[in-house]
Design a protein around this nucleic acid. Structure first.
Lengths: 244, 244
DNA sequence: GGTCAAAATATTGTCGACAATCTGCTCGAC
DNA sequence: GTCGAGCAGATTGTCGACAATATTTTGACC
């Protein structure tokens, strides 16, 4: 009952992919994208041979890809019973947000020490854009600016380990990024909090930067927690955006 | 120059390993242990067929294992050029310690809320043992108690995500655990810091617990930083223990 | 009609073989 | 003597086939 017109797309690019590139790597990227972007539903079974056909690679490559994704926390795998897309519960989403918060606070601290003037300028510019979006009421654009801001802070931290861990956590959350609520009035406060963070980074004050980021992210976690309990009350809460 | 009487031990346990267990999983555990315990040197090449013989599995299984270990950060892998044991520089060791600190601070916060009386009692007992070791001057045993303490706090936090991330970071650090210096007098201060953490957890004060753990771990990071620069000065600094 | 055993099917775990790629070396040209 | 082309050897990337295990279906019996 899966329809499945499988072998249609690629004329079996079998063997080695064009130049240099490795087929398995592309398969990894594609499958990962499919999971992260939500094209594959949670708990969906991932049958190796099906994926092999879809991705145009052999089953061995698929198996390697699944092992990587399992280690990454995007897939669960029971012995002799195959792999499935990992289901992230709301409780886990809160956990992930907390862990991410702890690491981003570290990143903010490092950024206060290591950010270049150009990076600070970019943050100021982003802040201005966010302010404009807020006034215009364009929450989607505000959210984009928000994402750029956090990405820039992490980049400015030059903290490879934190960057790597945060990226991993973010991947598990993408589904929730697009399905979480925006509490009325949260945006305005979010903006103030971001301004404080940038101020501290520009001043080169690591303690203040860490504290500001911690303050900011604790509010995000609170919002998420409230959302979770509210969602437990009545299932039909409208999916909006939460502002980090 | 490896002697290599390869096909002698297992009469090719090929196919499936005895009961239920999966051969590849055992191979993963074994190779991981070999890397973490330092039996394989950093930058050591990991030739697939050699590992296959050593571990008694096929090359495909080895390949899957290597993919997992790469995702875990214990192995680096260049396309068409094979895998090597990842070399963790002292700068990275500092990064890892910082990230671990951020996550353990979160764990301490959660533990303050969720720890059971039995868990707190275990911490008190461990604290007493550590005190005894300190008086007896047995630093190795003190270090063990220290490890038990941190493990218990993490367990008490019931924070699955933080636990998972910390475990991953710890694996990359084991080599340094055994090669870092103990600054004279650090143990005594370390003990006081641990006592404060347990006090805060027992009192059910998350803010205090987080702050105490943060304070503790910032000192650990400082010690590590000093050790790194000192080590840069004169290569022959004696390898001791650092107390987390 | 329900229930349990046994065959049939589906899917995973494992392996060896082959092709592609990289590495180091030889060897002739200059 | 140095340099690059071209050839071995080693090692990785990929695949399909077979064995082991789980799941579903069938069918006999009560």
């Amino acid at each position: 009952m899966d329809a499945m017109p499988p072998p249609q797309s690629v004329p079996t690019t079998a063997g080695r992919n064009g130049r240099g590139r490795i087929a398995a790597d592309e398969a990894y990227t594609r499958l990962r994208e499919d999971i992260v972007r939500g094209r594959l539903m949670p708990n969906q079974r991932l049958v190796e041979v099906d994926l092999a056909v879809t991705l145009g690679v052999g089953r061995t490559a698929v198996r390697t890809v699944l092992a990587r994704l399992e280690q990454e926390g995007l897939v669960v795998h029971e012995p002799n019973r195959g792999a499935r897309v990992r289901m992230v519960t709301e409780a886990e989403a809160l956990e992930i947000t907390q862990a991410r918060g702890a690491l981003e606070a570290l990143a903010a601290r490092e950024a206060a020490v290591k950010a270049t003037p150009a990076e600070v300028a970019f943050m100021r510019e982003t802040l201005a854009q966010m302010s404009a979006c807020l006034k215009a009421g364009d929450l989607l654009a505000y959210s984009d600016g928000n994402a750029r801001m956090h990405a820039k802070i992490i980049e400015a931290s030059r903290h490879h380990t934190a960057t790597r861990l945060i990226a991993g956590l973010k991947a598990q959350m993408v589904r929730f990024q697009y399905r979480t609520v925006l509490v009325p009035g949260r945006s305005a406060r979010s903006f103030v909090e971001h301004t404080r963070i940038v101020d501290a980074i520009e001043a080169g004050d690591p303690d203040a930067a860490e504290a500001a980021m911690r303050y900011h992210l604790s509010h995000v976690a609170d919002t998420l927690r409230e959302m979770t309990s509210a969602h437990a009350q009545h299932r039909a809460s409208p999916p909006h955006l939460v502002h980090f």
